[in-house]
Computed example of a mutant assay.
Amino acid sequence: MHYRDAVIWEKSMQLAETACREAAGLPREERFGMRAQITRAAVSVPSNIAEGWSRESRKEKAQFMAIAHGSLAELHTQLLLCVRIGWLEDDDMRPAFALIDEISRMLTVLRRRMRS
């Protein structure tokens, strides 16, 4: 199966689109700060899933899924901080937070399967 057919990749692409759109609304002075961090972390999730999916060895696949999982946690933290600061509205971020939770659970299952 191609990574583009994987549900986890599609959901992570949806999350990246949402996060990048939300980041565009952050204060202008955050263009090279939080906004850039959010964009990098958001893009890293589906990118590492795709790269891991394309690797041949289980060890390499697992490594890229671990990186994707770390980027997902980083993105979640950054979005939560933006809500706490008041740059983003909690209600607006609920769909993104739900996707983060779902993708995290999916990555956990994938990574466990790769270890066994």
Rank of each mutant, 00 (worst) to 15 (best):
S54A: 14
L75C: 02
S104H: 11
R111E: 13
A36D: 13
R105C: 01
A50Q: 00
H69V: 03
A98E: 14
C82L: 05
L99A: 11
L81S: 09
R4Y: 08
L110D: 03
V109R: 10
R55Q: 10
E51M: 10
G70R: 06
L99F: 06
F32S: 05
F97G: 01
L80S: 15
W53P: 00
L15R: 06
S44T: 12
R94K: 15
V83R: 06
T77A: 14
L72M: 11
R105G: 15
L110W: 08
S71L: 02
K61H: 07
W87Q: 10
L88E: 08
I8L: 14
I67L: 12
D5C: 04
S47R: 03
R84I: 00
L81C: 11
W9V: 02
V45K: 06
G70W: 11
L107Q: 04
H69E: 13
F32W: 13
A73I: 03
R31D: 02
G86L: 11
M93K: 10
G25L: 12
S57Q: 12
R21Q: 14
A68V: 07
E10D: 04
V83T: 10
A23Y: 08
P46K: 01
I8H: 10
I38M: 06
R105M: 05
A68R: 02
A23T: 14
E102W: 04
E60W: 09
L110Y: 13
V7S: 04
R55P: 02
R31V: 12
L81P: 00
K11A: 04
L26W: 10
